[in-house]
Design a protein around this nucleic acid. Structure first.
Lengths: 193, 193
DNA sequence: AAACACACTTGATCCAGATCAAGTGACATT
DNA sequence: AATGTCACTTGATCTGGATCAAGTGTGTTT
């Protein structure tokens, strides 16, 4: 159950067996069925979640009821509404399962304790957040700078698996496009070949 | 020279005088004149920089030569091309000074050593990156979800100082808008009052 | 096999914001 | 005082992508 988690932790920091056991003790295992919610906007996000198996989507819904995809999380990814998790304020995003999913979850209190007992976890999360920040930075630049087609081809290049695993309307939403637009873009790309 | 830095560090972690001295020893002081470059795209970003005084902008330039503002950094902010800094690859962004600026800079090797000698710095940067990530996440959602006017009013609310301190064309670029569009938006808002 | 749902496509029209092109007004330089 | 320059405004036009409204095709339920 903890295989993927430690695979990821050990890539970034070294941990004794004892430390590994301490870390394990802070996590709760949870399984989600396809379409089941992990978090609904308005609730407080109680857990930071690591995906051992499956696929989740996090998205927010605007005033007009339109869903805007935020990120996808599959094996080896962490997900939560970070803002809500760390501040205890109400979440603005929703998270639900696109596929049946197995999660490892930790509470904020657990997280705080864990980092104090095993300071290497501060290091792990420093590196993790650092990398996410780099990725987010690039995506932000891309969302402002590039055309719809460039955004799509960038995504396909940087994340080929995602495009295969996730329905096209969600990919469109992730890129900030109408589903029709993505459909036309794909057609144009195919025609040009 | 290190006042603002330690003000910020001590908000997030406690540090002995000894630790503070060690940290100081890793930093280089640098002054920049208005309009002077800190980093040009194509060079490797050698330093992670903390702004003690002044104001910097980081931006990238697209194929058509158009500048896209990425972020602003003033007193108490860190800046760099994180990707380039941590990987040693060529930078894609430019950083230059909007006002005369005083910086504290650390190299990647320095950063690595510092976190190993003073693990609390891992904690500091974990929290720093965590907060930046939350902010970036919000900005990304905003850039996809909101209209031009909503983006602007959001910025004014969340960052009133920035709007006063930075020329309007740079604000427009930061929001992904043409300068003319921002001008018209401001006019409309004023008219409605 | 008929009916339905789901994921995607195609076409016609519309609109927010970009682009191009002249202003305007407040300082700075000569 | 005239000239230049910088930051912004205003107007006219254009366009990428959204929106609305029918399809189509495949798999699933009855």
């Amino acid at each position: 159950m903890f295989e993927i988690l430690f695979l990821h932790l050990l890539k970034k920091v070294s941990l004794s067996h004892e430390e590994q056991d301490i870390i394990k003790s802070f996590f709760i295992v949870k399984k989600l069925r396809k379409r089941q919610y992990l978090l609904q906007a308005g609730d407080v996000c109680k857990y930071l979640c690591f995906v051992e198996k499956g696929l989740l989507r996090s998205y927010n819904v605007d005033d007009k009821g339109i869903e805007h995809m935020n990120m996808f999380a599959w094996e080896g990814w962490w997900t939560s509404d970070m803002y809500s998790f760390f501040t205890g304020e109400k979440a603005v995003i929703n998270i639900d399962a696109i596929e049946d999913t197995e999660l490892l979850m930790i509470t904020m209190e657990g997280f705080e304790k864990m980092t104090l007992i095993v300071p290497k976890m501060d290091r792990y999360f420093r590196i993790l957040f650092q990398n996410s920040l780099i990725t987010k930075e690039r995506r932000l630049i891309s969302s402002i700078t590039h055309t719809a087609e460039e955004k799509y081809t960038n995504l396909v290049e940087s994340n080929p698996t995602l495009v295969q695993r996730v329905p096209q309307n969600l990919i469109a939403s992730y890129l900030g496009l109408a589903p029709e637009t993505l459909s036309r873009i794909k057609k144009n790309i195919a025609l040009r070949k």
